[in-house]
C-alpha cells in the first residue's frame, strides 16, 4: 500500500512537472501572449514590393511594436502586393494619413512595417487602407541605379 502511494505521488509529480515545462515553453519562450485573439483593428496597405515581409512580421511606430502582419497576398488585377495587418486597439489615435514603409531590422534582420505619423485630425478605423506607402528597398536595384549613374557621369566627362 505504502509503495503504491509512492508510485502515485511520483507519477503525479512527474506529470505536473511536464505540464509546468510545457507552460514554461509556451509562455516564457514564445510570443504566446501577443497572439491574435486580443482586441485590435485591421488595416490594409498596397505595396509595389514587399521584399521578404512575412505573416506575423511586426508593425511598429517609433520603434515600438503596435501590431502584426496578418497576411501578405498578391493582387492579380492591380499587380500589387496587398498586406493586411492587425493593430492593437490601444493605439486608436493614429492619423489616417500616416504612411507605411517596409524597413529592415539590423543588417541581417527580418523586415517589418514602420508607420510614420501624419497630420490628419482623423484616426484610422477598422478596415481602412493606408494610402501612402513605400516599398522595400531591393539591394540589386540600388546597386544597378548606382552603377548606371556612375556610367552616365563618366560618359559626360
Amino acid at each position: 500500500m505504502r509503495q503504491t502511494r509512492a508510485v502515485e505521488f511520483g507519477t503525479g509529480l512527474f506529470v505536473f512537472m511536464g505540464i509546468v515545462a510545457l507552460f514554461f515553453l509556451t509562455t516564457r519562450v514564445t510570443n504566446f501572449d501577443s497572439y491574435e485573439g486580443e482586441k485590435g483593428y485591421t488595416l490594409m496597405a498596397r505595396f509595389d514590393n514587399v521584399g521578404s515581409l512575412k505573416e506575423r512580421s511586426p508593425v511598429s511606430m517609433s520603434g515600438v511594436t503596435i501590431g502584426r502582419v496578418t497576411s501578405v497576398e498578391f493582387d492579380g488585377s492591380e499587380l500589387e502586393a496587398v498586406v493586411h495587418m492587425r493593430i492593437n486597439s490601444v493605439y486608436d489615435q493614429i492619423p489616417d494619413d500616416s504612411d507605411a514603409s517596409i524597413l529592415t531590422q539590423g543588417i541581417l534582420g527580418g523586415q517589418y512595417i514602420g508607420l510614420e505619423a501624419g497630420g490628419s485630425p482623423d484616426a484610422f478605423t477598422d478596415n481602412d487602407e493606408i494610402q501612402f506607402t513605400q516599398s522595400a528597398l531591393v539591394l540589386e536595384q540600388l546597386i544597378s541605379k548606382y552603377l548606371f549613374s556612375k556610367a552616365e557621369d563618366s560618359d559626360e566627362e
Binding site: 512527474f14 506529470v15 512537472m17 511536464g18 505540464i19 509546468v20 515545462a21 510545457l22 514554461f24 515553453l25 519562450v29
Partner: peptide, 16 residues
C-alpha cells in the same frame, strides 16, 4: 506514449 511528450518538454525546458 504519455511519458514521452512530457519528458521532451522537460528536456527542452532544462536545456533552455
Amino acid at each position: 506514449i504519455i511519458s514521452m511528450p512530457l519528458l521532451a518538454a522537460i528536456f527542452s525546458a532544462m536545456g533552455i
